[in-house]
């Protein structure tokens, strides 16, 4: 019997934002996954913050994440609950930034390091939290 990774209900999750993370959540609200890149030296950074760690510029531009790959993951097993799978999703087209996000609705057998993932969403308040399937 193959187990399926669960999708947690995030509808009541409050997403606090600041000036530097708000563009991320504004984009996800529209169903777009964008990641921050320095407008001066083009280094990607994570999390979004006020300075480029490579050149200290504050000029930021938001780029499409591109295809994500599983970098690592864990299977959390709580008593009497279906497994949940927080994972690190790496984006080679965005400077190998890694986003921590859940892999949902997916057979545990299919979840391996290096697997390509598909973008999906979980509704959270006024925006969407990125989740992934395979």
């Amino acid at each position: 019997m193959t187990e399926i990774s669960a999708r947690r209900d995030l509808s009541t999750l409050e997403i606090p934002t600041d000036a530097w993370t708000k563009p991320f959540w504004d984009a996800t609200a529209e169903g777009r996954l964008l990641l921050p890149q320095c407008g001066a030296c083009h280094t990607f950074r994570w999390p979004p913050g006020p300075f480029c760690p490579a050149c200290r510029s504050q000029h930021t531009q938001w780029q499409p994440a591109g295809q994500g790959l599983i970098y690592s993951f864990t299977i959390i097993r709580a008593k009497d609950q279906p497994p949940t799978v927080p994972a690190l999703i790496e984006f080679p087209e965005a400077g190998n930034i890694r986003l921590i996000a859940a892999i949902v609705d997916t057979s545990l057998d299919a979840i391996v390091i290096g697997a390509k993932v598909k973008q999906n969403w979980a509704k959270a308040g006024d925006t969407n939290v990125p989740v992934f399937t395979i």
């Binding site: 947690r8 995030l10 999750l13 409050e14 997403i15 606090p16 934002t17 600041d18 530097w20 993370t21 999390p47 959390i76 949940t84 927080p86 994972a87 986003l99 921590i100 996000a101 859940a102 979980a122 959270a124 939290v129």
Partner: peptide, 15 residues
């Protein structure tokens, strides 16, 4: 408390 920096971890289910 969720902050702009750590909210991704809690959204992903890391406790």
């Amino acid at each position: 408390a969720a902050t702009p920096d750590n909210v991704w971890a809690s959204a992903a289910g890391l406790q």
